[in-house]
Computed example of a mutant assay.
Amino acid sequence: MKTDRRGKEAPELPVLTVIGCLLGFLMTVLVLIGPGLLWISTHFEPEDDDRLVVVAMGLVFTIGGLGTVTSHLWQNAKAREVHRGLDRKGVRANAEVVSSKRIWVDEVSTPADDVDLVVTGPGVTPFSARVLTEDVGRYETGTVVPVDVDPRTLLFRLAD
C-alpha cells in the first residue's frame, strides 16, 4: 500500500539531546566571555588600539551569545508547541515498517537505521514516512509500531 502522501516527523526537543547540551555549554561560554571582555576594557588601561579591539570582541561575543541563546530558546519553544499540538489533535495510529536499512553517520561511524513506514489508523488516510533512528535493530521489516498523528498535517511522532 504505497501512497503519494508523505508524513513529516515531529522535531526532537533540543533540551533532551546531546547536541542541545553541547550548545547550552557553548552558549554559556559565549554569554560570559562577551561581558567579561567589556568589563576588562573598562577596568584596565590597555593601549588605545588594544582597547578598541577588546571592546569590539566583547560586543561581538555578547551579541552573538545573546542571539544564540534566543534562537535556542525559540526553537525549543516551537518544538514543545508542536508536541502539545500532537497531544491535543493527534490520534493514535499504527505504522508498519516497510523497509529498514542500516546506515553509518558521522566520522566515528555511528550506526543508525533508516526506516520507511506506512502509517494507517482510524481517521487517518494512509501515508508513507521515513524515520532515521539510533535504536538500531528495533524496527525490523514487518514490525508494527504505534505513532501519534495529526491527520490534517500528517505530522507524526513515534509513540513508545
Score class of each variant (00 low, 15 high):
residue 19 I to T: 13
residue 60 V to F: 11
residue 97 V to P: 01
residue 20 G to L: 03
residue 95 A to V: 05
residue 131 V to Q: 05
residue 96 E to H: 02
residue 68 T to M: 13
residue 52 L to I: 15
residue 131 V to M: 14
residue 23 L to K: 10
residue 66 L to G: 08
residue 59 L to C: 11
residue 15 V to N: 01
residue 41 S to E: 02
residue 88 R to H: 12
residue 100 S to M: 01
residue 64 G to T: 05
residue 13 L to P: 02
residue 3 T to K: 12
residue 59 L to T: 02
residue 12 E to A: 14
residue 14 P to Y: 08
residue 94 N to M: 10
residue 41 S to Y: 03
residue 38 L to M: 15
residue 9 E to M: 14
residue 99 S to M: 08
residue 126 P to Q: 07
residue 39 W to R: 00
residue 95 A to K: 00
residue 154 L to A: 15
residue 154 L to M: 13
residue 143 T to P: 03
residue 24 G to V: 09
residue 49 D to G: 13
residue 154 L to F: 13
residue 52 L to R: 15
residue 147 V to T: 12
residue 96 E to S: 07
residue 132 L to Q: 10
residue 119 V to H: 01
residue 98 V to H: 02
residue 88 R to Q: 11
residue 60 V to E: 00
residue 23 L to I: 11
residue 136 V to L: 11
residue 129 A to L: 09
residue 111 P to A: 12
residue 121 G to N: 06
residue 45 E to I: 04
residue 146 P to M: 10
residue 34 G to W: 00
residue 96 E to F: 02
residue 4 D to L: 14
residue 32 L to G: 03
residue 93 A to K: 03
residue 65 G to E: 00
residue 107 E to Q: 13
residue 14 P to R: 02
residue 89 K to S: 11
residue 71 S to V: 06
residue 55 V to Q: 14
residue 85 G to H: 12
residue 122 P to D: 15
residue 135 D to Q: 14
residue 94 N to D: 14
residue 91 V to E: 01
residue 99 S to H: 12
residue 72 H to D: 04
residue 122 P to N: 15
residue 128 S to A: 15
residue 74 W to G: 07
residue 96 E to I: 09
residue 7 G to R: 02
residue 68 T to I: 03
residue 72 H to K: 00
residue 76 N to G: 11
residue 109 S to C: 01
residue 30 L to I: 01
residue 4 D to W: 08
residue 84 R to K: 12
residue 101 K to I: 14
residue 11 P to A: 09
residue 6 R to Y: 06
residue 10 A to W: 08
residue 67 G to V: 06
residue 71 S to D: 08
residue 6 R to N: 05
residue 151 P to Q: 06
residue 125 T to Y: 10
residue 93 A to Y: 08
residue 125 T to H: 14
residue 115 V to D: 00
residue 131 V to F: 05
residue 86 L to Q: 06
residue 150 D to A: 09
residue 27 M to A: 13
residue 46 P to Q: 05
residue 152 R to P: 00
residue 49 D to E: 15
residue 98 V to P: 00
residue 2 K to P: 08
residue 106 D to F: 10
residue 54 V to C: 00
residue 82 V to P: 07
residue 89 K to R: 13
residue 22 L to W: 14
residue 41 S to H: 04
residue 130 R to T: 10
residue 152 R to D: 15
residue 160 D to Q: 12
residue 16 L to D: 04
residue 24 G to W: 02
residue 116 D to E: 15
residue 41 S to N: 02
residue 61 F to P: 04
residue 153 T to Y: 06
residue 116 D to F: 07
residue 142 G to R: 09
residue 70 T to D: 01
residue 62 T to H: 10
residue 81 E to N: 08
residue 53 V to C: 01
residue 11 P to R: 11
residue 121 G to E: 03
residue 5 R to M: 13
residue 160 D to G: 12
residue 123 G to I: 05
residue 32 L to D: 00
residue 158 L to V: 15
residue 96 E to V: 13
residue 148 D to G: 05
residue 94 N to P: 00
residue 18 V to H: 12
residue 59 L to A: 11
